[in-house]
Design a protein around this nucleic acid. Structure first.
Lengths: 226, 226
DNA sequence: CAGCGCATTTATGAATGCAAGATATTGACA
DNA sequence: TGTCAATATCTTGCATTCATAAATGCGCTG
């Protein structure tokens, strides 16, 4: 979240936590998967202690669920819960967009626009993974442009929790093209200094993305609930 | 009647985490305080293991900071950081207010209004602690009225992190009266179904509260940054 | 054959032990 | 006397061990 590495002496429990976070966010650890402590410990060549610490941290953050004496499982989201999360991201991102419009420096604005323009090639090439990475960079740039580090952290945290679901979204139909176009519309409003319009467009953008996913999510949850 | 719970289903580490959270939020553990694992363990009659788990969870959530091999301290906030957090709460609460305006049920609305009216007595009596409790209930009611559980959790989490600072705020001058009046104005806009106006008023309300605190915060941080 | 109860097994929660790093102390030397 | 360095102590990070709750399997009985 906040770039505080540089630590060559990284904590084992942190490494495990980060790895698990990635695995869950990337979907390689599907929702509902039971997380055996010894198993994970073996996989990392560690003992159970740092694994337990990592799991607790994730639990407190909502990525996994730990029922006392019954072990940890990757949080299985209900469709309602996911919808709530998407709505929340949409609102938070809209908020960031509004604030960023009024506060970003000319340099930040031009960087964001450059980023957007460079992504056009990815859209044409249909390079979903690269576009996904760009997408994150774009939104992160927006967070930073609010000049509110705490808000940026919150926004990023929520986005990360949803990334497991967002990941698959762009692959569906022409969503990637619409996504790119919507980014352009948002930037246009920001360039005009109309924070409210930019915010509305961002909200719509996020909800569009969520919508294009809803069908997939239903299937996804169904599959994993066997 | 209850006394010592024989059926203590709760996890020891969770009890410790909650206790520490309360202690930090209430201010009885001041920012910058070093948290010695053995010391806390002794205080709870436990070993270091559950204490460590609790500290890690708090660290990942920002309440304490653990520098590897150097122990945990209660996060020392910079004035900038606090200002950012207040701005974020203000925006988030405004968002909740807007959503709640459009979504709350008549029952929820009347409950919120009843709560508000009952608080008038506390204002007159100058019962700050009771008003503080009411204040939390009021805002929590608002969160719930968004009918978005995830958003409510996020909003509550941010509010809790700031509670250590908010706590002292009402005691300063006539703030408690203004707070009550502002609540009334917000509810009035909500009753009219004007979510945008209600949101603007809520944002102003939160920023007013933050403002009345800024002087205190500067002193507070100054003292602790020796 | 089905359902229930008990024993065994497994995995989690917590305690203890030990090694490495950080801090404090003390002593030597300029 | 001040500064630096070596050592001693303390604290943390992780491993190991112990205890106990939950899960599993098996046999018994109706």
């Amino acid at each position: 979240m906040d770039g505080v590495e540089i630590e060559e002496r990284e904590l084992l429990s942190d490494r495990i936590r980060n790895a698990l976070t990635d695995a869950i966010a990337s979907g390689s650890l599907a929702a509902g998967t039971a997380l055996d402590e010894q198993d994970i410990a073996d996989r990392f060549g560690a003992s159970r202690t740092p694994v337990r610490e990592a799991l607790r941290q994730l639990a407190y953050n909502g990525l996994v669920e730990v029922r006392p004496r019954k072990g940890a499982v990757v949080t299985r989201m209900t469709p309602e819960r996911i919808a709530e999360m998407f709505e929340t991201t949409a609102e938070v991102e809209a908020m960031c967009t509004r604030l960023a419009t009024y506060r970003m420096t000319p340099l930040e604005r031009s960087q964001l626009m450059a980023l957007h323009e460079s992504s056009a090639a990815l859209v044409e090439a249909g390079d979903y993974d690269a576009y996904d990475a760009f997408n994150l960079a774009f939104h992160e740039g927006l967070y930073r442009a609010t000049h509110n580090g705490f808000l940026a952290e919150q926004a990023l945290g929520i986005r990360m929790r949803l990334s497991a679901f967002r990941r698959t979204q762009l692959r569906h139909g022409p969503r990637i093209h619409r996504s790119h176009a919507e980014h352009g519309d948002i930037l246009a409003a920001m360039a005009e200094g109309d924070g409210e319009a930019a915010a509305r467009r961002m909200r719509a953008h996020m909800l569009n993305a969520a919508n294009s996913l809803s069908g997939y999510i239903a299937d996804h949850l169904g599959i994993h609930s066997l």
